[in-house]
Design a binder for these strands. Structure first.
Length: 307
DNA sequence: AATACGTGGCC
DNA sequence: TGGCCAAGTAT
């Protein structure tokens, strides 16, 4: 009799019978050997640091985030420190990370954490979701990575790995909490530490091996069980992603020009200076109004300043 | 549900 | 060159 009677099936293996091959075990093992050395994986990294990193990582590449994150945490080591600064300083420190509303939202979240949670980043997903700028991904990421709670964490990397390895599709369909969370839950190990490592590992796999454009399947821990690979990498036939609009000449572009100007000075930016940023007066006015409406620019006597 | 929202690197 | 992509959220 083999050792199966003496070594019971692991939790992960137990899922196998109803849910296909075990995805978690090879990913956890791979992650233990291949995890990048990133700031938020350092021992002693705080929950606040995790929250800040997750805000910055929303749609912005890791390499661009790291220097800004380190500056940010040196300047504002706690939520209360950030809450005590003007929001405009957060926008300035955000620099070129893009989507500067996130800086405003992060500042607002810091105020909320200070007021509602005594300055301690909450671990509860629903309390995190109630904070400004925190959605389904970030709430779970903070709860899991900062506090070790057991939840599925689903980002674009995770969705892509599951689409390929489990569903046999080259790309995931449109994001859907209704489908994405159950799909990840079905793969999640029962053990707390394993669940955390699996969440981090599958995200890392999507980020550095199972990438969108050039997957390195020969070095993938799932190469023997990946359904997309087994099927010969069929073209994706599902719903196409909405085409990203051209940036050059867009309203976003003009907003970006104005924001760069506001960040680079502590003096009000005059209407004349703003007028010099872009030839189309109507578009410039539209961008400026939008920024004021968003709270990123504030009109003063002399011109516009950060909040 | 579709769209707006920055900035830059990569092939 | 230019389209695609990047740890999403709010509306």
């Amino acid at each position: 009799m083999p050792e199966s009677s003496e070594s019971p099936l692991s939790d992960a293996a137990a899922h196998e019978q109803s849910s296909g091959p075990d995805v978690a075990t090879p990913i956890i093992a791979w992650f233990a050997e291949n995890a990048r050395d990133l700031p938020w994986r350092r021992p002693g990294f705080t929950a606040w640091g995790t929250l800040v990193s997750e805000f910055m990582l929303q749609q912005t590449p890791v390499a661009r985030v790291i220097p800004r994150l380190e500056e940010w945490l040196a300047r504002w080591p706690t939520p209360a420190d950030l809450a005590a600064s003007p929001p405009g300083e957060a926008v300035r420190a955000w620099a070129n990370l893009g989507y500067p509303r996130r800086a405003l939202w992060l500042h607002r979240a810091a105020v909320e954490i200070t007021e509602r949670h005594g300055g301690v980043v909450p671990s509860d997903v629903d309390q995190l979701l109630a904070l400004t700028g925190i959605g389904d991904y970030t709430a779970r990421a903070v709860s899991v990575f900062a506090y070790g709670l057991r939840h599925p964490v689903v980002d674009t990397n995770v969705r892509r790995v599951i689409a390929r390895a489990v569903d046999g599709n080259g790309q995931p369909g449109p994001p859907s909490a209704k489908r994405d969370l159950p799909a990840m839950t079905a793969l999640l190990p029962d053990d707390l530490a394993d669940a955390r490592a699996f969440n981090a590992g599958i995200m890392e796999l999507g980020a550095i091996r199972c990438t969108a454009r050039s997957p390195q399947c020969d070095d993938c821990p799932l190469r023997d069980i990946c359904r997309w690979r087994a099927a010969g990498y069929p073209e994706y036939t599902g719903q196409k992603k909405a085409v990203q609009k051209k940036y050059e000449g867009s309203d976003r572009h003009v907003r970006g020009l104005i924001m760069a100007e506001l960040r680079h000075t502590h003096r009000p930016v005059t209407p004349a200076e703003i007028a010099g940023l872009w030839p189309d007066v109507d578009q410039l006015q539209r961008a400026l109004s939008g920024l004021v409406a968003d709270g990123l620019a504030v009109p003063e006597d002399e011109g516009y300043v950060l909040p």
